[in-house]
């Protein structure tokens, strides 16, 4: 087993710069968007003055840091969701003839612009075969059915499969657990939305990813039986707390999904030799970036702080 002592020590030192629950509370309590920005500037030394700039800078810095800590084999699993996000954005932008540049993310295994150009030209030679196949099929689904949701379902399922496979290939147990949790929360989310919109069993079966630790068949059957049936099924699994979150509404459920990932990341705090703390740092920092984006967007749109707070996940530090 590889040892990551140097990298984990850097992560431990870096973790002290993560925003704490108290920092998030201060951000939430700030009077205005400007005062939240000022507070963020003082605490996190953020120089940018707009939300996308702040988050893009933080994401760039995160990837630079991670690349110094671990090899491509470890980071591949973390990059896969970015690739598939870029595929989704590119396919939709090309189909609706809009500009995708604001939607594309850096940090994937393939360059975001290359994905976009490949989808636009329908020439996938520059992409890795697995990504090329997904781009081609997603474009074909959208052209054939004109149904964006079907296209999203196909891309999401391909992403979860690729993520779980890459995690297994990395040989890191913690990575496999993270990929499995991601698959489970994605499946629970899809089942929840399908049950809310009273979708048919065949639609739900098609929407769920056949992986993770939950049985996709049982989940699909439960979701097709309505909300109560779904709550009962989820309550009988290891994700019983998710059933309570679902009952409280979509925002509470989204928060629960983020909390579950943070809870898993927290387990890595007792590791000193494996790459688990590096992976955990990625999830914690990403959660921080998303939370800052959420709070600043809320402040910019003058939302009540209690409405924003409902969506803010538990913070690790």
């Amino acid at each position: 087993m590889n040892e990551y002592i140097y990298s984990v020590a850097r992560v431990r030192a870096k973790e002290t710069s993560l925003l704490t629950g108290q920092d998030m509370e201060q951000l939430l309590n700030s009077d205005s968007f400007e005062s939240a920005l000022l507070m963020l500037h003082d605490r996190a030394k953020q120089g940018e003055r707009d939300i996308s700039g702040i988050c893009a800078d933080a994401e760039r810095e995160l990837w630079t840091f991670l690349e110094e800590l671990a090899g491509a084999d470890v980071l591949k699993t973390l990059r896969i969701p970015i690739d598939y996000h870029n595929i989704k954005a590119s396919v939709k932008a090309v189909f609706s003839d809009t500009d995708a540049s604001d939607l594309l993310l850096g940090g994937g295994t393939a360059d975001a612009e290359t994905i976009y150009e490949s989808v636009k030209q329908r020439e996938y030679g520059e992409l890795e075969p697995s990504l090329a196949a997904v781009c081609s099929e997603a474009t074909s689904i959208l052209l054939r059915t004109q149904d964006g949701q079907l296209c999203d379902i196909y891309i999401d399922r391909a992403m979860l499969r690729a993520e779980e496979d890459a995690a297994k290939e990395s040989g890191e147990d913690f990575m496999v657990r993270c990929a499995r949790l991601h698959a489970d929360t994605a499946n629970l989310g899809a089942a929840y939305r399908c049950a809310l919109s009273q979708r048919s069993l065949s639609f739900i079966e098609n929407a769920l990813y056949d992986g993770g630790s939950l049985s996709a068949d049982a989940l699909a059957k439960a979701a097709s039986g309505g909300m109560d049936s779904l709550y009962r099924y989820v309550g009988s699994t290891s994700y019983d707390s998710g059933a309570a979150a679902m009952r409280s509404g979509a925002a509470a459920f989204e928060k629960w999904c983020a909390d579950e990932m943070i809870k898993l990341a927290k387990e890595a705090q007792f590791e000193t030799l494996s790459c688990a703390p590096i992976i955990a740092y990625y999830y914690l920092k990403s959660a921080e970036i998303n939370t800052v984006r959420l709070i600043l967007s809320g402040k910019l749109n003058h939302l009540d702080k209690d409405i924003i707070r409902e969506r803010v996940p538990e913070i690790y530090v």
Partner: peptide
């Protein structure tokens, strides 16, 4: 050596330690 790797990691981020 192992302790040194950890020390180098910490000092990379925070030389005061």
């Amino acid at each position: 050596g192992k302790a040194g790797q950890a020390a180098a990691g910490v000092v990379t981020e925070d030389p005061s330690k």
